[in-house]
Structures are given as C-alpha cells and as structure tokens.
Design a binder for these strands. Structure first.
Length: 674
DNA sequence: AGAGTGGGCCTTTTT
DNA sequence: GGCCCACTCT
C-alpha cells in the first residue's frame, strides 16, 4: 500500500494543551495515543474493546483531540456514531478540550454521512441534489401504491403489506442477502411469493428514482455504490478521510461494515470502538461478528481492551459480569470497579403488574426523600407495553415522568403534513408528499390523490412549478381547499423576495391553510399548532432547506426530544425507557421491570440460541446502566389472554445469577415499609 | 369514491 | 389502547 499521501512529518515536540497521561488511565492512554509500528501517526487498524462504563466516549473524544493536536486537519477525520447526539456530544467535548476550530470534522451517523456525501454526488446515480428522504412510513405507503398498481390480488392470497415488504427489503439491504434468502431464513411463510416480491422491489426502485427520493437504506446503498463504482469520487473521499473512527462498532451491520472498509481502505487508519457484550440490534441486521472477527479481517490490527469501570458500585458490576458469562461467543473481559461500597442489588417478586407499579412508585418517592433527583432515576423494560400499568400508577400519584416513546416527534401526522408542503415546494417530483397533501382536502382519498398526481405532476415539474388555482380534475367538493393549497404552494415557491427560510415557509403553511385544517380535524389543535411553531424555531439552526428536511427524516426521537421538548419545561422527571433506548446512558437508580420469562427475554425471540444470547446482552445493557442502586422486579402473575398469561416464572437471566449477587425482597413481609 | 363507525385483532427493539 | 378492516351512509 502506497503511503505517499500521508502528510504529517514528525513535528518538533511542542506544547500540548492536554495532559493525556494525567487525564486518562493506562488502557485509555494506550488507545488514545496509539501510533504505528514506525512511530508515525499512521496507527493502522485498531480495535478498542471498551466495556460498559469504562469511558468509551472519553477515549474516542481524546483520540480525536490527540489527532488534531498532532497536526491532523479536522476535515480529514471521519467520526461515525450510532446517533447524532453521540457525535454532537463528542465533538462538543473535543471543542472544550482544544482551543482550535474543529468544526470541519465529519461526524454523524452512517445515514447522515451518506446523506451528506450523496447530496453532492447524487447526479452520478441519476438523482437530483435535492432528493427527498423517505422515512419508514413513507416507504411503506409508497410500497402499498406499488402493490395496488401491480394489481396484485391481496385477498386471494395473503400478500405482505407495504410495511412488511419494507422490512424484508431493508433486511436484505442491511445484511447484504438476496430477497430469497431473507424470505427463506426469516419469512418462510412468504417464500412461495419470492417472484412477485422481487418484481415489486424493482417497481419500488423505479418509483423512488422517479420521485427523486431515497429511503433510509438507499442512503447506505447508494453511498457504497459511489465508493465502489465511481472511482473518482470514491477516491476523493478515501483520500480525504485520513482517520476513520467508528463508535458502537458492535451494532454495525454488513453494509455499514462494508462502507467503513470502502472508506478506510486507502489510509487504513481505522479505529473501531465497541463492546461485543452490548450488541443488541441484530433484528436490524447488526452482526456482532463484525467486531468479533475484526482481527481476522484486519490481521495487522492492534487490540486494546478498556476494562476499568467508573460507573457502577462493585456489587452491581459483579452481577453484570456474571450475567453475561453464559454467552459463549465473546471477547473475554473482566470489568473492574473503581468505585467502592454501595448496596447489593435487589430482586423483588411482585404479585402482579399493579403491585410492581406500586412498589416502584413508592420507592421512587422514598429515593426522592433521600435526596436522589428524579432525573437520576430510570425504569427500563423490554417493550413499551410492559410499562402500561406503571404509567397509570405514576400518573395517579403525580410522579412526573417522560417516556422515550416509540412515536417520534417528527413522525406525528401534523409535523409530517407540514413538512410535506416544504418538500413538494423543493422537490416537485415528490409524489409521496403531494399525495399526502392532496388527501388533506376534504373529499379526496387515495384514488383521487392518485388521479390528481397524474394530472398535476407535469404542471409542477414544469418551468414555473406553479399550480393553477382551479383544475378540472379537482372534485367540486374540494375546490375551495384546492384554491388555498395552490396559492400556498405558489407562495412557497415565490422567490421574488429571495429564498425563503424554513421557518418563514412553515408560518405561511400555517396561516394559509393548515391552521384552519387543524382546528376542524383535531380536538387538540392548539397543542399541535404549538408543535409546529416549535418545528419552525427548530428549523432556524439549519442553514439550508435541504439540511433541515434531511434532519427531520434522520433525527432519532432522543435527539428530537432534546431539541424540542426539554426546553419547553425544565421540570424534574423520572425516565421510562426501553433498554434499547437506554443504551449509552446511566442513572443513579435503575429499575428493571418485567423480569419474567416471556417478557424479558421476550417470548418470540427464544426460537434460537442467537436470540437468547442477544436477550442476555440486552439484560447486561440494562443492569449496567445503574450507578448506585439496581432493582429487578417481576410479576408472579400476568392477566393476559393467550398462553403468555397466568403464572410466571422468573426470567432465566435472574435464575442463572448466583444468589450472592442480590438480596431478595418479599413485599408481603415488608408491606409496612414498602 | 370518501367518510364515518363499530368490531376484532395484536401488541419488540429503530436509523 | 391503537390499528385495520368491513360495512354503511352520503
């Protein structure tokens, strides 16, 4: 491999701003300051196995700072993270460490980086630079259109719906398997439909291209295509990214791993950081073998282990260490606690979900009394509906809580409606947005929306892009709505006063149509209008329309929440969250609830060993979120239809724990206290 | 062709 | 509780 690109002559030693030796432990220091065998900054491939609470973020942050301090241009560093929040947080911390400007560092999720690269090069793939991003709902509904168009008789034989198809295609993309294989391995009951399912995929692809739209997976696929097929562009980025750092590597899937390899293959300064014990996204195609086999894929890789835990008291950490032991495939590690003291975790069998809820509510109040802030308390569970009873109990007792919910802020109907007005103004080929808006008109459903698109599309993709205020294809009943919408659309596109900013456009949408629509349609119109105003102010932070709209599609709920909700109300609250969404976070007191077989591990994950192992990793993630106190609870009885109801057994993950790790609390005997 | 209503179904995790 | 579907009315 030629190294003639490498531009960092060894500088004469100079004053560093950070005392790395002092601020890092030995293991972190070794990873942060790693150099190549020749002593140069070309460290080559590195695998950093960082256990829970071991300062993984700190290590990455300092590594970036170290590189910059040693003369690496920020623009030549690529930092890939699982969420944008993580990227932002790390860059913010680097900024705090160094006096220089590091805004040129490329940081974000795979989808974001893909998006960023594609915006500049989409033309090579037949897309315009202002392509629309389809979220999962958009993809599913476009697929439903394709099914309808293909005239598949969905009644004669049960044919998968758009959302299921989207899932199948997505798995195929993310794991780089053929549709047939995905069907055979995960959807065998649809195997006989492989033919039409594959045909539909082609139709779907064409429709996306025509609409100048990419779904989530396209952001990865097309980016990879760019690197593999467009040598010139690929080489430019390969050349640019002298250092590639990847966070949460255990959760990457095949296509992401390939993308990383494709980007880093020139300079090979690839540092991947992760913890195989915390790989919990296999259902999304993640493959923890990416991290396990990294040393084989990169034989020259150096391996660093970071095993000092700063987060949890020893009793919690010991429990966690033993909890994960039953998994056969993992890097051996032994996390060591820095902290001292602390209480043993509790195991609390409860009569049923109501008693479980009462216990938690009660204990939360006591913790509050002991001076633990509500913000330092979290309740974690396997699936959202496990927390239903708890939500009711907390509400009854006026204990404030927030849920990192399944529904994202940006997925709510009124937010998406508003965004569609902006999208169609920007991308006149955006069929999905047009139809969504059309269906807002009274008297227009799917059929009429289809018809309108056929008639109207040539007009808006024409020279001016303006809409006539009346049109023969518009039903009489909808004429008034149409007039408003047409004027509104033309107004949004009007550039006589210069380009409009997103917030300005949102205001126009509200004032000229949508506010009125909300009032008629929803009983909580005011709340929704307020949401849309929030959206407008949120848009202010983005310099361009494309960036704002991309963010809407790509932000996770956690990030959305930070951006919009927290500022609204600074109150204290406990956090209710799935284990998945709790990843990377920590609280003083953590309750893990619903720990019976069938809930956690969740029933249908148990058909195979891999499934059980992933559930165990999930349990490991859950317990390692706790700093000081850990409560594990489960109901002995569940009232439910079907075979999941009735008397419950404690989770196998609890049963397999040596008893020395916890103290069992019987609620009956302690009723007076708890 | 659309909108509104009632009954039966099912509840994982998400960029 | 929420979603989907079938049914009925306009």
């Amino acid at each position: 491999m030629t190294q003639e690109y490498i531009l960092h002559p060894s500088h004469a030693p100079r004053e560093l701003h950070i005392d790395y030796r002092k601020e890092l432990n030995d293991q972190q220091y070794a990873a942060v300051t790693a150099r190549g065998a020749d002593g140069s900054l070309n460290s080559g491939p590195m695998l950093v196995i960082a256990g829970a609470g071991s300062g993984k973020t700190r290590t990455l942050t300092y590594r970036v700072a170290w590189l910059v301090e040693h003369g690496i241009e920020p623009s030549r560093i690529l930092l890939l993270t699982f969420t944008n929040k993580a990227a932002k947080e790390m860059l913010r911390r680097v900024e705090g460490l160094l006096p220089m400007d590091i805004s040129q560092i490329w940081g974000g999720t795979f989808h974001h980086i893909g998006n960023r690269i594609l915006r500049r090069n989409a033309k090579l793939l037949g897309y315009g630079p202002d392509f629309t991003i389809l979220d999962r709902e958009d993809s599913a509904s476009l697929l439903n259109d394709c099914i309808a168009e293909a005239k598949i008789d969905t009644k004669a034989e049960r044919f998968p719906k758009g959302d299921v198809l989207a899932e199948i295609y997505s798995l195929a993309v993310n794991t780089e398997r053929s549709v047939e294989r995905v069907l055979a391995e995960q959807y065998d009951y649809f195997s006989h439909l492989a033919g039409p399912i594959k045909t539909l995929r082609d139709v779907y692809r064409e429709r996306k291209l025509k609409a100048n739209a990419m779904d989530y997976d396209d952001l990865l696929v097309n980016c990879l295509r760019l690197f593999q097929e467009e040598k010139e562009v690929g080489d430019r980025y390969r050349e640019q990214f002298l250092y590639v750092l990847v966070d949460e590597y255990q959760d990457t899937n095949k296509i992401q791993a390939d993308l990383i390899d494709a980007i880093a293959m020139l300079h090979r300064n690839l540092m991947v950081v992760g913890d195989d014990a915390q790989s919990i996204y296999s259902w999304r195609g993640a493959n923890y073998r990416n991290i396990l086999n990294f040393p084989e894929r990169y034989p020259s890789a150096t391996v660093h282990k970071i095993e000092v835990n700063y987060r949890s008291v020893p009793a919690i950490l010991n429990l966690a260490n033993d909890a994960i032991k039953a998994n056969p495939n993992q890097f051996a590690k032994n996390l060591q606690a820095v902290r001292k003291g602390g209480a043993k975790p509790w195991l609390i069998p409860c009569a049923d979900a109501n008693q479980q809820s009462q216990f938690i509510a009660q204990r939360v109040l006591e913790l509050r009394g002991e001076g633990v802030e509500l913000n330092e308390i979290a309740v974690l569970y396997r699936a959202h509906f496990h927390a239903m009873e708890l939500q009711m109990e907390l509400t009854r007792r006026n204990i404030p809580y927030v849920i990192t919910s399944g529904l994202r802020f940006f997925e709510q109907a009124h937010i998406k409606d508003t965004a569609c007005f902006l999208k169609i103004a920007l991308n006149p080929h955006d069929e999905m947005s047009f139809k969504r808006i059309a269906k807002l008109m009274t008297g227009v459903g799917a059929a009429t929306a289809d018809k309108l698109w056929v008639k109207i599309h040539p007009i808006i993709s024409g020279l001016t892009g303006d809409l006539p205020t009346s049109h023969p294809s518009v039903p009489k009943k909808s004429a008034a709505d149409w007039k408003q919408i047409a004027k509104l659309h033309n107004n949004l596109r009007d550039k006589s006063d210069g380009d409009k900013h997103a917030d300005e456009m949102i205001e126009i949408v509200l004032e000229n149509f949508y506010s009125g629509y909300l009032k008629v349609k929803y009983d909580n119109a005011r709340v929704r209008e307020e949401d849309i105003n929030q959206l407008a102010s949120f848009s202010l932070q983005f310099p361009t329309m494309e960036e704002f709209l991309s963010q809407l599609a790509l932000l996770t709920n956690l990030e959305a929440e930070d951006a919009t909700l927290i500022s609204a109300d600074e109150r204290e609250f406990i956090r209710l969250s799935t284990v998945h969404q709790a990843k990377g976070q920590e609280w003083k007191a953590v309750f893990v609830i619903g720990l019976c077989d069938g809930m956690f591990p969740l029933g249908r994950t148990l058909d195979n060993m891999e499934g059980v192992e992933e559930e165990r990793r999930l349990f490991y993630v859950a317990v390692t979120r706790a700093k000081d106190e850990l409560y594990m609870t489960y109901p002995l009885y569940r009232q439910m239809g079907g075979d999941a109801g009735g008397f419950q057994r404690a989770s196998r993950f609890v049963v397999e724990l040596p008893k020395m790790h916890y103290q069992e609390l019987s609620l009956r005997n302690n009723a007076a206290h708890w």
